[in-house]
Design a protein around this nucleic acid. Sequence first.
DNA 1: AACACATTTCCTGTTT
DNA 2: TAAACAGGAAATGTGT
Length: 245
Amino acid sequence: MSITPFVSLESPVTATWGPANSFHDGPLVMSSYTSRLWSQDSQPQFWSKYQVWEWLQQVMDIHQIDASSIPLQNFDMDGHQLCSLNYHDFIRAAGSVGHILYNSITELKSGGQYHVDIGQLEIKHEKVYDPLVHTHAPNVSPTPSSPDPRGTHLWEFIRDILLNPERNPGLIKWEDRTEGVFRFLKSEAVAQLWGKKKNNSSMTYEKLSRAMRYYYKREILDRVDGRRLVYKFGRNARGWRETEK
DNA sequence: AACACATTTCCTGTTT
DNA sequence: TAAACAGGAAATGTGT
C-alpha cells in the first residue's frame, strides 16, 4: 500500500490551468458582449415591459432555445414584477427553461456584468465582438451549446479541457474527435486539477473515475471497454462537437 | 428544515 | 505487481 505515490505533478500543469480555467475568459468575453445588450439599463428592477421582453429574447437566443418553446405571455410584465418572481415562479412560467431564466435574472440583480457563460470556450474563438452580431439577427448566437448556465460538472470540466488545446498541456487527448472518444494522458494531473477547482486537494483519479462511471447510466458517457483511460461522450453530453446541432 | 443531485470517499473484487 | 475498471453503500456539499 503506497501512501502518496502521485503528489509530484509537473508544476507547469497547474500553472497553466490555474484556478480560473474556464471561468477566466468567459466573463471577459461576455462582458463586452452583454454590455452592448444591457449597458444602459443594467438594473432589471427598472426595466420596462419591452426591456423584459428583450432580455427574454437574448437569453433564449444565447442558449439556442426556440423562443416559441415557452409561453412568452407569462412574461408580460415589467422589471419590477420580474424581479419579484422566485425560482418556482420561473419554473411554472417557463418549465425547464425557467431555470436558465432564473439564473440569468439572479445574476443581473446582483449586479453581475455577465450572466451566461455557457460555451465560453467556443465563444472566444468566434467573432463575438463583431458589431454585426447585434443588428437584428434572430439567430446569431455565438455557439451551439448546452442550455446549461455555468458549467460546474465534472464532464463539463473534462470537455472544456479537450476544447482548449492551447491550454491543455497533454492532459487529455481526443481519440476520435467526431465520435467523442477521448483518453486521459495524465490521469492524476487531471484529478488534481479537478480537485483544485473543487477546492479538494485530496482528489485522485481513482475517485474521479468513480464519478465518471456514474455518467454511464445517465448517458453522459458511453462505455468504451477494453481501452484503459478511454471514455466517450454520450447523447446527454452537450457542447463537445465541432458542429453541434 | 428538508430534499434532490452530483459527486466524494471507501471498499471488495475483477481485469489488464 | 501495479494501475484500471466495476459498482455498492454511505457520507458530503450545494442549492432550491
